[in-house]
Design a protein around this nucleic acid. Sequence first.
DNA 1: TATGAATGAGACTTCATTCAT
DNA 2: TATGAATGAAGTCTCATTCAT
Lengths: 207, 207, 207, 207
Amino acid sequence: MANSKARIASNIKNEELVNIRRQELINAAVKLFVEKGFHKTTVREIAKEFGMSMGALYDYIRTKEDILFLVCDHIFKSVSNKLEASLKSEKDTKEKLRGAIRDYFNIIDSIQDYTLLLYQETKSLNRKDRNYVLSKEMELTKIFENIINQGIKEKTFKIDRRTAKIVANNIMVQGQMWSFRRWVAQKNFSLKNYIKIQTDLIINSIS
Amino acid sequence: MANSKARIASNIKNEELVNIRRQELINAAVKLFVEKGFHKTTVREIAKEFGMSMGALYDYIRTKEDILFLVCDHIFKSVSNKLEASLKSEKDTKEKLRGAIRDYFNIIDSIQDYTLLLYQETKSLNRKDRNYVLSKEMELTKIFENIINQGIKEKTFKIDRRTAKIVANNIMVQGQMWSFRRWVAQKNFSLKNYIKIQTDLIINSIS
Amino acid sequence: MANSKARIASNIKNEELVNIRRQELINAAVKLFVEKGFHKTTVREIAKEFGMSMGALYDYIRTKEDILFLVCDHIFKSVSNKLEASLKSEKDTKEKLRGAIRDYFNIIDSIQDYTLLLYQETKSLNRKDRNYVLSKEMELTKIFENIINQGIKEKTFKIDRRTAKIVANNIMVQGQMWSFRRWVAQKNFSLKNYIKIQTDLIINSIS
Amino acid sequence: MANSKARIASNIKNEELVNIRRQELINAAVKLFVEKGFHKTTVREIAKEFGMSMGALYDYIRTKEDILFLVCDHIFKSVSNKLEASLKSEKDTKEKLRGAIRDYFNIIDSIQDYTLLLYQETKSLNRKDRNYVLSKEMELTKIFENIINQGIKEKTFKIDRRTAKIVANNIMVQGQMWSFRRWVAQKNFSLKNYIKIQTDLIINSIS
DNA sequence: TATGAATGAGACTTCATTCAT
DNA sequence: TATGAATGAAGTCTCATTCAT
């Protein structure tokens, strides 16, 4: 975890302070990025929301893009942490998958502005940072893939392992759909309903 | 068609000329947007690729954003036209759905740079233009929804109409997934394979 | 000549206009650089003196350093051109050397602010541009070296060719001394006097 | 000596501590100035090389320029001290001049990075400090002038006192030439050779 | 005394848009 | 209609200096 933040250089020596301030910075930036997008948000505005001078802001990062990375990284970690916390063992594999989907979709819903941001601005990162974020996303996908594979082994799910990979990705994408197709999903369905329908469809398609 | 282009004001009186030039403009812009994204492409670069002066370019549009709209609109029409052309009646509803999915995924694949562009830059449009583009996307989704509903009526598909709406959106999103998750989809599957697996999953989930 | 200016990229297509404007730019910049030095002169100030907007200024150059290069290049060409123009054949090699020294020192005196600038700011250029300027300076030095070598061949001067190289450089440096040690040279000597004394010393040392 | 350093104000009362620290500061700064020049070296970098905090650094100086003055002053004193130390009486005036030139050129060579620095950055000093440095340089020049004048009195050198002043300055400049025209001097000559040729030329020109 | 986080003015540069020709 | 030079506002980033601790 410190690992990813350490990717961004800082002038400040007090590491704890760096962490605190960066969290503040992330909060300030997320708010603005969600409102106006990365490109249309100026560093000056971020500094103001951050509550410090521009100079001070630049003591915690090197470039504007660093801020985006910090934000994306933070969002992913939020999702990962919450999802992993919720993955307490369930008896039944099918139930486990249902539970994971439910938790994941709920998390997405609770931070849907962030989700949107993540998928729309990732492309503004440089290659290295983008790859890092993508690798995080793949870790998440792997969680679903693993559960499905377990079900395959137990003969609960009647698909092959290659299909499992696709299903896992479908789950990810259908979760994100809740936020980036909100104009159709959220207009027509309650979250609970949406989760039930999507989960049934998925389980149905692999059983 | 003239309808949507007419949304953008022009100094030029000769409507036919406007249409020809705008198509050239779209081609020039798409190329650059795909390469570098909307924000990082300058109007100067577009004018150069367009082969006209900046002044001339501004005779065909009012703002840089207009170009993005023209491009997005064009891409959507490409998809719509191709898809509708392919929807010649098939006997069987299930086959019809399979065929539509196959055609749609193939179209996506053939213009995947455009697809990516569409989904990443739409947010840079102003509210009005964005809504217009979204409405086009909904029309497309409706095509799938209608086929599924027909299948429901015929008892081919065993879901309700509300679920049909979600499935239609899933199809759209899984198609787009081929391009915006290319690093996992295209790395692991041939297009033909991908289509087969996804189609089977969908059909399975609703049969 | 176009050669060296062509080193600097420009947004403007009309080449003639570029030449005119760059000359104006050089004039504006030299004035300020002489007054305050390169680093303490801002681009805004240059634009103001230049009489155009900052944007327009940047249509003729790419970076602030380009301006310095343009200025240095211009100064060197002034010296070179004037010196070469004055090198009309004189009968006697010794007289020819005397004449060249006199002309060179006079030129230095007439543009002494520039000379100072040249020798103090060259180091602020990037490697490539600095090398270019140095090569120009070496061409100039070569003029003196050639005359001396001719005198050696004619037995007028009683030194070897290696010493000739040093003498040529001494001449260059003693000319520059008139401007960058003005507080001692110009305080104590008239230019005419300074030239006579230095020339006699040089001729004396090699006869 | 304390005299010149006392020109720079300090917060610290303990004068001895100030002197020690300033020497360390000079060492740190010289290293960086030689590498990157005065303007491109940041105070932060100096503080780091100095091994103290920025606050501490500013206890020993008032402005960044003070550091440059300290450095220039230090360099001049190095040269002066070494040169004066080497001026132990020689019998013969001509030999004395030869010796002084040799020593001076050797000193220049041994600290040629410093020499370069001195002549390139002096202009960045404020008027007062610059004048102080110039006066130091004049003291040095005076050493040579005095020897030559002694030779004139003894009829060893056949020039007048005004010419002596110029010759003294020529010596200074030809010494510096070794470092700031290194690309021609050091490329073509060994130091020993360079000294011999220049010395012969000088002696020749005044004998 | 020493620390180093914070300030804030200002530097360079870019670029969508306009308008005289 | 067409050209492209010019505008000027705004953007990102730097850094000498200060001051609370």
